[in-house]
Design a protein around this nucleic acid. Structure first.
Lengths: 133, 133
DNA sequence: CGGTATCCTAATAGATACTG
DNA sequence: CAGTATCTATTAGGATACCG
């Protein structure tokens, strides 16, 4: 009965209040929550080239403040997308790198990206259509 | 050259500053933006069973205020997920229904849901593992 | 360098009341 | 019924300064 819902997809839920459907909504919301905000995606992309130090990430993203960067990295750590490593140099060196688990996002990200690109084109096209009326 | 990026997926971008990669980030962010917030997903699910009137949607979602519901529905309309129809009864009747285009979200939603469910289980499991240490 | 602490702004959501 | 208006609460995000 779980697989029934799995196969049907979220928008096919026939009973909004059913446990299965609420599970689906919760699933989608959990995923959105984890990826959300201004910095999560750029951060994952930046780290996808390899480990980076705190300051280097900051430079890479351009204008993120240390407070926000710190918060975002902690969240990514909690979700096990990122590992923080401390080296006992002087001064101390800290690097952040993506975990293998972060790759579990690949399919989600691809779908999001494809849909987003397609949607933007659609919106732009429909704006043009309207302005030429 | 666009397909090259398509196939590689977002986290494989090798040049953060490349046009292609920024396009991918923008794509993902556009998609997240459109689905985001507390109500978009529950709203789409609620309407997936068929057209509903304003008040019925409100009841269906439980505790959304008319102001927020109105705003959310307008955004869904702008993105062409929803069509608003006015019937000249007295008092006037208004229904909202999903468009065929809203189905273009099916794949994204399925990936989000699957990943979200899997991720929640993983987090819960790792909490248990930690508490039994 | 790798952060934290404090203060501040802007966007988002909600409560409540009201209108055509 | 189908909303809008007004006001308030919460949140995300940022500027700036400072610490080990």
């Amino acid at each position: 009965m779980e697989t029934a819902v799995e196969e049907k997809g979220v928008v096919e839920c026939t009973a909004f209040n059913s446990t299965e459907c609420r599970g689906a909504i919760t699933g989608v919301r959990d995923a959105l929550y984890v990826l959300n905000g201004k910095w999560k995606i750029p951060l994952i992309v930046a780290l996808s080239e390899g480990p980076l130090r705190f300051k280097d990430i900051q430079r890479s993203l351009g204008d993120i403040t240390p407070k926000i960067l710190s918060k975002e990295l902690k969240e990514l750590e909690l979700n096990e997308f990122v590992i923080r490593t401390v080296y006992s140099t002087t001064p101390v060196t800290v690097t952040y790198q993506l975990t293998p688990y972060s790759r579990s996002l690949d399919k989600v990200m691809k779908e999001l990206k494809d849909w987003g690109i397609q949607h933007r084109q659609r919106i732009v096209a429909s704006r043009k259509a309207n302005s030429s009326n």
